[in-house]
Simulated assay, not measured.
Amino acid sequence: MAAPVPPFTRESALQKVRLAEDGWNSRDPAKVSLAYTVDSHWRNRAEFITGREQIVAFLTRKWLKEQDYRLIKELWAFTDNRIAVRFAYEWHDDSGHWFRSYGNENWEFSADGEMSHRYACINDLPLADADRKFHWPQGRRPDGHPGLSDLGL
């Protein structure tokens, strides 16, 4: 099945969000970068990124730091070529300290469905191991696993 392209419907926006979540949970920077335009513009926290090469470099650094990364994204709103999501992910640093990072992203897409702009606001919360909620094996979140709203997040 082809990836959804604008204009988005509720169903195609939900599919686009899940495809993005699946891609990021792969933790494969080269693969993830292909979902973005060649000249995609990002703001991630206080970092500004332009183009696939910088996306790959950013994600490589990110997943070296954020170990055992597991992400859930949830559709917040959409229009013709834009989607807003909220998300949470859990990870630990090289000292074994766990965190849950919460945030919102605003996405804009080109006519062919690649993301041309991504603006992310993210906050990190230290997390006790006992408070973790994302326990699936590394990779894609299983279809039956609860989403953010189901988990009370």
Score class of each variant (00 low, 15 high):
4 P>S: 07
5 V>H: 10
5 V>T: 15
6 P>I: 01
9 T>M: 00
9 T>P: 01
10 R>E: 13
13 A>H: 03
13 A>E: 04
14 L>E: 15
19 L>Q: 15
22 D>R: 09
23 G>D: 09
26 S>N: 11
28 D>W: 01
28 D>I: 05
28 D>E: 06
29 P>I: 09
29 P>A: 08
29 P>G: 08
32 V>W: 02
33 S>P: 13
35 A>I: 10
36 Y>C: 03
36 Y>N: 05
38 V>T: 15
38 V>F: 09
40 S>Y: 10
41 H>W: 13
42 W>T: 13
48 F>E: 13
48 F>D: 09
49 I>Y: 01
50 T>K: 14
52 R>E: 10
52 R>D: 10
52 R>S: 11
53 E>G: 07
53 E>T: 15
53 E>I: 12
53 E>C: 03
55 I>P: 01
57 A>W: 06
57 A>C: 06
59 L>S: 06
59 L>W: 12
59 L>P: 05
60 T>F: 06
60 T>W: 06
61 R>M: 05
62 K>Q: 14
63 W>G: 00
65 K>C: 02
66 E>W: 05
69 Y>K: 00
69 Y>Q: 00
70 R>I: 00
71 L>W: 02
73 K>D: 11
74 E>W: 01
75 L>G: 04
76 W>T: 14
77 A>Q: 13
77 A>F: 11
78 F>R: 02
79 T>G: 12
80 D>V: 02
83 I>V: 11
84 A>F: 10
86 R>Y: 11
86 R>D: 07
91 W>T: 13
92 H>N: 11
96 G>H: 07
96 G>W: 06
98 W>Q: 12
98 W>A: 10
98 W>V: 11
99 F>N: 12
99 F>A: 07
100 R>A: 01
101 S>A: 10
102 Y>W: 10
103 G>S: 08
106 N>D: 09
106 N>R: 07
106 N>W: 07
108 E>L: 02
109 F>R: 03
109 F>P: 03
110 S>P: 04
111 A>E: 12
113 G>L: 00
113 G>T: 04
114 E>R: 15
114 E>F: 05
114 E>T: 15
114 E>M: 08
114 E>P: 01
115 M>F: 08
116 S>R: 15
116 S>D: 08
117 H>C: 04
119 Y>V: 15
120 A>K: 05
121 C>H: 15
121 C>L: 14
121 C>Y: 15
122 I>S: 12
123 N>C: 13
126 P>F: 07
129 D>N: 09
130 A>M: 05
131 D>M: 00
131 D>T: 04
133 K>I: 03
136 W>V: 04
136 W>C: 01
137 P>R: 03
138 Q>T: 09
138 Q>R: 11
140 R>G: 00
141 R>D: 03
142 P>H: 04
142 P>V: 04
144 G>Q: 11
146 P>Q: 08
147 G>M: 05
148 L>Y: 10
149 S>T: 15
149 S>Q: 11
150 D>W: 06
151 L>S: 06
151 L>H: 05
151 L>W: 04
152 G>V: 02
152 G>D: 02
153 L>N: 00
